[in-house]
Design a protein around this nucleic acid. Structure first.
Length: 412
DNA sequence: TCTGGGGTCCTAGGACCC
DNA sequence: TCTGGGGTCCTAGGACCC
């Protein structure tokens, strides 16, 4: 029986704005300013999409209305909508703020068949929250997700287990999970544009064309042979932060404060969940948008802001040394991976990069970690801006607001 | 007119070990 | 037809997702 539901709120941020301000309904709107964070369906009709520069969006859609976001409302309404799924089954796998899978196999005796549950959920989200939501119902997660995409906007598609391949094989390949612009183009070169054509291509030649993992996965998906179960909770495997900085000279006056700010954000998140990580990766993007990464795996995990910032700075230096012709950078990123759960009293030992000699500051790890904890405690009581380094300066520079960043953060 | 921010997973080559 | 082999960790890059 088809018991997997995939629920996806339509143009979520924009729909919330149209809900909060009725004068925006039926109008092309964009959340954001310098960059479009989300667009309503009316704006999408003009070719506006998330990530697009605001100026470009205005050109495409002269009547476009920009609104600054109500980020707290997104979180509240997203939670509430996914919570409706949770009224029917505990088997809910949340994918993002506006999207989730659910398996209703164990509750049909209480609430009726899956398609009826799906209709009820759509009605409830519409009536109780005022938001449009699309649902797909199928035997597998992948098919349910495709069904909800086909159902958009504000629709329901149920895939009968007896006609799964009829439904699937007529659709374009880019609807499949894992087929982005590059894979789509590679397939198109071989004349493959539909999932049906993909299914007729041998797994061997797909693996040759796309690599073992992607080729094998797509071959399985094309025949709907991918029975992945619902997983209710997975911990994050990495935590990172990035900042697009326009075009700035590649000097320490530019990257030092930026790295400090990024390290501060990441360190705070890690410490709040008693986590720490061994591998630090930085990304440096140059003026032409080409990017390089440098990483190091430390002998012991860290979460102290100052140490993270120092390690990141050394990595950025090596990246810049390797590209002496690059004089301008446009983005800096830090990510911490190989995460571990912290013992309750961590004595963080700054052991330095690989086999290099111990750096200045070695031996002060525990003191730094305690200083960070003190800052964390003050911020908990009085807010982020109460103490620390220039968050305000960064927010003023036209980048994305911190509230928006938090929406995308995964639970550590 | 040049494209935000937070994530996951895969690949390939090299080091190192047994 | 084919020069030893396999496992694990690390690093850099890339594709993709929301």
């Amino acid at each position: 029986m088809a018991t997997i539901l995939h629920a996806d709120l339509d143009a979520f941020y924009a729909s919330v704005e149209q809900l909060l301000d009725p004068s925006l309904r039926d109008k092309p709107i964009a959340v954001g300013g310098g960059v479009v964070l989300a667009a309503s369906y009316e704006a999408k009709a003009f070719g506006v999409y998330g990530g697009m520069p605001g100026r470009r969006a205005r050109e495409l859609c002269p009547g476009l209305v920009f609104v600054s976001g109500h980020f707290d409302e997104y979180q509240r309404l997203g939670d509430a909508a996914i919570g409706v799924l949770g009224d029917y089954t505990p088997l809910v796998e949340r994918i993002s703020i506006d999207e989730a899978f659910a398996d209703v196999a164990g509750c049909t005796h209480l609430f009726g068949p899956p398609d009826e549950i799906a209709r009820t959920i759509r009605c409830r989200v519409r009536e109780e929250l005022g938001l449009p939501i699309s649902l797909g119902v199928a035997r597998t997660k992948h098919l349910a997700k495709i069904a909800s995409q086909v159902a958009k906007p504000d629709g329901l598609v149920v895939v009968d287990p007896n006609s799964e391949l009829d439904f699937l094989h007529g659709l374009p390949v880019e609807l499949m999970w894992g087929v982005g612009p590059v894979t789509k183009a590679r397939l198109a070169e071989k004349g493959v544009t539909t999932i049906g054509q993909l299914a007729e291509t041998s797994a061997r030649s797909l693996e040759r064309l796309l690599g073992r993992a992607v080729g094998g996965k797509l071959a399985a998906l094309a025949w709907n042979r991918d029975p992945r179960p619902i997983t209710t909770r997975r911990r994050a495997r990495s935590a990172g932060a990035q900042s697009a900085i326009g075009r700035k000279p590649a000097t320490s006056f530019v990257y030092r404060p930026t790295l400090r700010h990024l390290a501060d954000r990441i360190g705070g998140r890690l410490r709040a969940k008693d986590r720490c990580g061994r591998t630090v990766t930085v990304r440096v993007r140059f003026a032409d948008l080409r990017a390089v990464t440098r990483s190091v795996t430390l002998p012991a995990p860290i979460s102290a802001t100052a140490i993270l910032a120092e390690v990141a700075e050394e990595l950025v230096c090596t990246a810049l040394r390797d590209h002496p012709a690059e004089e301008t950078i446009s983005l800096l990123a830090i990510s911490v991976s190989q995460l571990e759960t912290q013992a309750d009293l961590q004595l963080e030992l700054p052991l330095g990069l690989a086999d290099e000699k111990r750096r200045p500051g070695a031996g002060r790890g525990a003191a730094r970690w305690m200083a960070d904890r003190a800052v964390d405690a003050i911020r908990n009581r009085f807010g982020r801006e109460a103490v620390g380094y220039g968050s305000v300066v960064f927010n003023a520079s036209g980048s994305v607001p911190d509230d928006f960043r938090e929406l995308a953060e995964k639970d550590l």
